[in-house]
Every structure is written in structure tokens, then in C-alpha cells.
Amino acid sequence: MIQLVAADLHHVNSVILDRMQSDVSLIPELAGHLIAGGGKRMRPMLTLACARLLDYGGARHHKLAAAVEFIHTATLLHDDVVDGSGLRRGRRTANIIWGNPASVLVGDFLFSRSFELMVEDGSLKVLRILSRASNVIAEGEVNQLTAQRRVETTEDHYLDIISAKTAALFAAACRIAAVVAERDDAVEQALDSYGRNLGIAFQLIDDAIDYVSDAETMGKGVGDDFRDGKVTLPVILAYARGDEAERLFWRQAMEGSRTSDEDLAEATSLLRRHRAIDDSIARARTYGQRAIDVLGPFPNGSAKAALVEAVEFAISRAY
């Protein structure tokens, strides 16, 4: 995908660098720390690849892909403040370097920039899709916050959370390509479905490898979700399958009274015992296959192959 969209991505990066500038020097300094900090640009690349899939020959998608990246970056800045994170993509987070207030306010600035880019595009439909996605992401983050440390969280509730906080932007990033290419609602819905299923698979893998990867690979602290009391699918499955002693452990861990390295090792042992990590990865494969299946009617070629490979990449991070 990187090779496929390289020329377009160059234009997108130019827009990003231009629009993150401000006379207030802290804004580009802080924003640049995250934007230039090793991110894969996966979401804007999806916009570009979907446009290529539809043989779109214009340039509108450059600004819109930049808007997608600004929305994503703004949510990361806010998330790191909420979570108290110290690492992002293997580097110290902006909130650790510049403090929480600056991170929140620069996140607000990037949200505003994204809406400027949408307005410049001039399509009310694009504005509706991306503004709706921004709203849903915020709802998902609040929903996750209210579910934090509640080990009784159901699988359906968890899927609602990740569908909103992660998959909504994947879906919107893909869908807007159909709008700029002036395709019908069926194509819009197909690309929306591709992005949504890919986004769910992506988050399922993230939540699984939080317990089994390392900080260098993940770019964040190992076991962060565990220590933050985030009730993700591996925990939900292990809790449901465990005996009463194990459930007591999970209740204490998610409530924050058992978060040592030894407790994390115990949690990982329980997850493996009940195949909670393996089954979470298997669910990710199911959603990934749904994303690939949606692409069936589209013509074969480099764009379709890249979109299929993006799904495979998202899932292969678990290995």
C-alpha cells in the first residue's frame, strides 16, 4: 500500500505539514512530535488506496486524507492525557513532555484544522461523514471510560466501544473515497464496511498483543491496558471461563489493587490457560475476512491487492 500511494501520500504530507503550522510555536512543535513520530499513516493511506481502487483521478482526496490524519492525531493526544500514557510509538508522549493542558489544546487545534479542510473541499456529504465519525469516536472514548474497571463488561458492549473509538474512522476514511469519486451508495456502503471490519480487527489485535508483545514492538508499555483497568476481549473471555478464584483475581486487578509485574504475569498465564488471547486473535481474523470479502466485486489489480494486504498486515502484528 505504501508503494501504491507513495505519490499521493507525498501531497498529503505536504498538506499536513502546512496546516499544522501556527504563529503559536508550541502548536507545530507539539503536533510535529506526534505526527512525525513514526506513525504509519494507515488511515489516510486507506483513503488514497480506496480512491485508487475506484480510479479517481482528481486531487480532492489529498486534503481529505490529511483531515483524517488530523482527526486521528487529535484523538491520540487526548487519549494519552486520559490514559496517563508515557509512551506512544516508542517515544515519550506529548503530555509527558509538554503537560496535559498543552496536549488537550493542541488536539483541539488539530480537530479544528481537520474541519477547515473539510469545508474547503465543499462537499456536505464528506463533511457529514467525517463529522459524524468524529462524534462517534468521542462517544466511544466516553463509553470506554465508563466501562473502565468494570469486569462485568459484556462482549457486545466491548464491541460497541471499539466499533466507535477505532473502527468509525477507518470506515469514514474509506467511505469518503467513494464520495469524491462520485460513486453510488452501494459502493460507499461497501467501502464503509471494509473499513469498519478492518478497524475492528485492528483493535482486537491491539488488545490481544497488549499482554504478549513488548514495548519496542508495540511502541507503548506492555500491560498498559491491564494496569489501566481496561476490560478488553481477552479479559472478558478469561473472566467468563475462569473459576471463582480467578474471577476474584480479575475483579481485584481491574479495580486496580493487583497491578504489579507479578500480577501481570499471572493475568497473562490465565489468558493463555483459557485461550483468551488465541480466541481474540481468531475473532480478529473473522472480521478481517469480512473486510476482504467485501472487496470481492471490485476489479482485481494493485489497489485491491493492497487493501487485502492491509488486512493481513493488521492481523499479522500478533505474530
Results as ranks from 00 to 15, higher is better:
residue 2 I to D: 14
residue 4 L to E: 06
residue 6 A to L: 14
residue 13 N to G: 13
residue 13 N to S: 11
residue 22 S to D: 07
residue 22 S to P: 05
residue 30 L to Y: 10
residue 31 A to T: 04
residue 31 A to F: 04
residue 31 A to V: 04
residue 33 H to I: 05
residue 36 A to N: 15
residue 36 A to V: 00
residue 41 R to M: 12
residue 42 M to G: 01
residue 43 R to D: 05
residue 44 P to H: 05
residue 53 L to Y: 05
residue 54 L to G: 09
residue 55 D to R: 11
residue 65 A to K: 02
residue 65 A to V: 03
residue 66 A to H: 04
residue 71 I to T: 02
residue 71 I to A: 01
residue 77 L to E: 01
residue 80 D to V: 04
residue 80 D to G: 03
residue 80 D to T: 02
residue 91 R to Q: 15
residue 91 R to T: 06
residue 92 R to H: 11
residue 93 T to W: 03
residue 98 W to K: 00
residue 107 G to K: 02
residue 109 F to V: 00
residue 115 F to R: 06
residue 116 E to F: 07
residue 116 E to G: 09
residue 117 L to G: 09
residue 123 S to K: 10
residue 127 L to E: 04
residue 128 R to V: 04
residue 131 S to P: 04
residue 133 A to F: 03
residue 135 N to T: 09
residue 136 V to M: 01
residue 136 V to T: 13
residue 138 A to M: 01
residue 144 Q to K: 03
residue 157 H to N: 05
residue 157 H to C: 02
residue 163 S to N: 11
residue 165 K to G: 01
residue 170 F to V: 07
residue 171 A to R: 03
residue 177 A to H: 07
residue 177 A to V: 10
residue 178 A to D: 03
residue 178 A to K: 08
residue 179 V to I: 15
residue 179 V to M: 04
residue 181 A to D: 09
residue 186 A to G: 12
residue 188 E to C: 15
residue 190 A to Q: 08
residue 192 D to N: 14
residue 194 Y to E: 11
residue 194 Y to K: 08
residue 194 Y to S: 10
residue 200 I to W: 06
residue 205 I to W: 04
residue 207 D to K: 07
residue 207 D to E: 11
residue 212 V to A: 11
residue 215 A to M: 13
residue 215 A to W: 12
residue 220 K to Y: 13
residue 225 D to I: 09
residue 227 R to S: 09
residue 229 G to E: 08
residue 235 V to H: 06
residue 241 R to H: 13
residue 242 G to R: 06
residue 243 D to T: 11
residue 244 E to M: 14
residue 249 F to N: 10
residue 251 R to I: 14
residue 252 Q to V: 02
residue 255 E to H: 14
residue 259 T to N: 15
residue 261 D to Y: 06
residue 263 D to R: 04
residue 265 A to V: 10
residue 272 R to K: 13
residue 275 R to D: 15
residue 278 D to K: 11
residue 278 D to H: 08
residue 279 D to G: 07
residue 281 I to R: 05
residue 282 A to T: 08
residue 283 R to K: 14
residue 285 R to T: 09
residue 286 T to D: 14
residue 286 T to I: 15
residue 289 Q to V: 04
residue 291 A to W: 07
residue 291 A to F: 07
residue 294 V to A: 09
residue 295 L to A: 08
residue 300 N to W: 02
residue 304 K to A: 06
residue 308 V to C: 09
residue 312 E to G: 12
residue 316 S to H: 08
residue 318 A to M: 06
